[in-house]
Amino acid sequence: MYDKELVLDILKQTLEATEKITRRFEKINNVADFTNSEFGMERLDSICMLLIAIGESLKNIDKITKGELLKNYPEIDWKGTKGLRDIIAHQYFNVDAEEIFWVCEKHIPPLSETLQKMLSDLQ
């Protein structure tokens, strides 16, 4: 068995990160909103930092639970979500704003919903 309280804490922090991304993404309507202003670039940078934190948190959860928790929620591409962390962290100066826009638009809402479900299931 794994440390359930630790996993719950990490899940809460990860959910908070998705909520921050959602708030920071609200005023971004297209990729140009990221790339054509200092405001947009600051948003892009801050969202990328949160995506790194999310990926690292998910890696930690996988390690703590020996790969047993995330596999119970197949609606999320966990490997891709964790892999995004590596791409951003190691290729930071080559981050594709279009990809980050797409992730924010298409993947953060279902990730947030799944994290909420996981928290509810574990509590």
Score class of each variant (00 low, 15 high):
1 M>Y: 08
2 Y>C: 00
4 K>C: 02
5 E>G: 08
6 L>K: 15
7 V>Y: 10
8 L>F: 01
9 D>Y: 06
10 I>T: 12
10 I>D: 07
10 I>N: 05
10 I>L: 14
10 I>S: 07
10 I>E: 08
12 K>H: 09
12 K>F: 07
15 L>Q: 13
15 L>F: 15
15 L>M: 09
18 T>L: 04
18 T>W: 04
18 T>G: 03
18 T>D: 06
22 T>A: 10
24 R>V: 02
24 R>A: 11
24 R>K: 13
26 E>V: 13
26 E>L: 12
27 K>R: 11
27 K>Y: 03
29 N>E: 13
30 N>C: 13
35 T>C: 01
36 N>S: 12
37 S>A: 05
37 S>G: 05
38 E>L: 13
38 E>V: 15
40 G>S: 04
41 M>E: 14
43 R>Y: 01
43 R>T: 12
46 S>I: 14
47 I>G: 02
47 I>Q: 03
47 I>A: 02
48 C>D: 10
50 L>F: 05
51 L>M: 15
52 I>E: 13
57 S>F: 02
57 S>R: 03
57 S>D: 14
58 L>P: 01
58 L>R: 01
58 L>S: 02
59 K>A: 09
59 K>G: 15
59 K>Q: 12
59 K>P: 00
60 N>F: 03
61 I>G: 01
61 I>P: 03
62 D>P: 05
63 K>A: 11
64 I>K: 05
64 I>S: 07
64 I>M: 09
64 I>D: 08
66 K>G: 01
67 G>L: 09
67 G>P: 06
69 L>Q: 04
70 L>Q: 02
71 K>Y: 02
72 N>R: 11
73 Y>R: 06
74 P>H: 02
75 E>I: 13
76 I>D: 09
77 D>Q: 05
78 W>V: 12
78 W>K: 05
81 T>E: 00
81 T>C: 06
82 K>Q: 14
82 K>S: 10
83 G>Y: 07
84 L>T: 12
85 R>V: 07
88 I>S: 01
88 I>Y: 02
90 H>L: 07
90 H>W: 08
90 H>Q: 13
92 Y>M: 06
92 Y>N: 05
93 F>A: 02
94 N>D: 14
97 A>Y: 06
97 A>C: 05
98 E>K: 13
99 E>H: 09
102 W>A: 10
103 V>F: 04
104 C>Y: 09
106 K>G: 00
106 K>P: 00
108 I>K: 05
110 P>K: 10
111 L>T: 09
111 L>K: 04
111 L>Q: 08
112 S>W: 00
113 E>K: 12
113 E>M: 09
114 T>Y: 00
114 T>E: 02
116 Q>Y: 06
118 M>K: 07
119 L>V: 08
119 L>Y: 08
121 D>T: 09
123 Q>F: 08
